[in-house]
């Protein structure tokens, strides 16, 4: 196993996740498609970072690349730097990374039914984690499985530990998946649209559960979502993705109060607020670009109300927002956007 890196110079524990310059390219018969084009992510222990984006923005591809799930031959994954809980992923063998999956970093998928094995009881599936990663006996594994089902709020867990996935409702299945994800107390939990398939009343339960476990276990959470409402409910920080790049990162309050990127600004104006109905939504013209079909300038420029000549010419880099510690934005007109939010 790779040795844990010493605590960082400033005395803080190492980041739960640190990724520098992640690039993912799909090689298809019609050419190569750069789905993720240089993404940096840092998540502190116990922090929830929401990676927000629309379909095709590269948010799920990013999550799968971090987990190391792009194992098909036609996908190229490059990273400059990648550590999970201080351990260097790039210095590891494939086998070492495999052992890390499920223990140090885990993933909760959108569709719980297809993520669970239909022919194993939920008790056996959860127990398997302890048998494989911890060498537990059959009996210990079963006991730990029961504890976990109770932890995630499955009613009458004792009777249900021998049930199969199809005997549970959608919300309960998602709880089981979460139980498996936190079983070995990972440094990082990646939740890829964990509530998108669920009803709104069940969604609220699941979001609350993830947040409670984060607090109790100190796990860092990378929440992949397309929903500005969900991100506002649970995230500490938000990274907004568009066309394969992060265009803005910010603490959650600042992002919604004073967006620094025109895309975030436009999104917030385009969605209705349940408690503050308005007469007109400000729609964003056009559609998100297809991955790979972006020019050399800013990918959002064709839809942006603030774009000028420089936007189509030069790619704006993700840089710190002056006067706003902890915020970054990739826009030539960030100042303008920030001012608009105040006035």
């Amino acid at each position: 196993m790779a040795r844990p890196v010493e605590a960082e110079a400033d005395g803080r524990a190492p980041a739960a996740l640190e990724i520098r310059d992640l690039r993912v390219t799909f090689n298809t018969s019609t050419g190569s498609v750069p789905a993720v084009r240089g993404v940096d992510l840092v998540i502190r222990p116990g922090e929830t970072l929401a990676l927000l984006g629309e379909s095709g923005s590269g948010k799920s591809v990013t999550a799968r690349a971090i987990m190391g799930l792009h194992d098909r031959g036609n996908v190229e994954v490059e990273m400059e730097h990648a550590t999970v809980g201080g351990r260097d992923l790039l210095a590891m063998s494939a086998e070492e990374r495999r052992l890390l999956r499920g223990s140090a970093m885990t993933m909760v998928f959108q569709d719980a039914l297809s993520a669970l094995n239909p022919v194993l009881t939920v008790g056996d599936q959860i127990g398997e984690l302890f048998r494989v990663h911890r060498g537990a006996s059959r009996r210990e594994a079963r006991e730990r499985a029961l504890e976990l089902l109770e932890l995630v709020g499955i009613p009458a867990a004792k009777d249900r530990v021998r049930d199969y996935p199809h005997q549970f409702s959608g919300g309960m299945r998602q709880r089981i998946l979460i139980a498996m994800a936190v079983a070995l107390e990972p440094a990082l939990l990646i939740a890829d649209e964990p509530t998108t398939a669920l009803d709104v009343t069940v969604q609220a339960q699941i979001l609350r559960l993830i947040d409670r476990l984060r607090q109790e276990l100190g796990t860092a959470v990378l929440l992949i979502t397309h929903d500005l409402g969900v991100a506002a409910e649970v995230a500490d920080r938000i990274a907004v993705m568009y066309a394969g790049r992060i265009v803005e990162t910010s603490p959650v309050d600042d992002l919604y109060d004073r967006p620094a990127h025109p895309y975030t600004e436009a999104l917030l104006a385009a969605i209705p607020d349940l408690e503050r109905p308005s007469s007109e939504l400000l729609a964003i013209p056009g559609t998100p670009p297809r991955p790979g079909a972006v020019g050399r300038g800013c990918a959002f420029a064709p839809r942006c109300s603030r774009s000028t000549a420089v936007c189509t010419e030069r790619l704006p880099l993700l840089t710190p927002v002056p006067g706003h510690p902890g915020r970054t934005a990739a826009c030539h007109h960030t100042e303008e956007v920030l001012h608009a939010a105040v006035s």
Binding site: V200, A204, Q205, R208, A232, D253, D273, L274
Partner: peptide, 24 residues
């Protein structure tokens, strides 16, 4: 239903909510 719907404003996070137990 309304108190379960996520609101795109972090300040609304601490509103009083009625959590329904279980699934329909």
């Amino acid at each position: 239903l309304m108190s379960a719907a996520p609101i795109p404003r972090p300040q609304a996070r601490h509103r009083e909510r009625i959590m329904l137990a279980g699934d329909p």
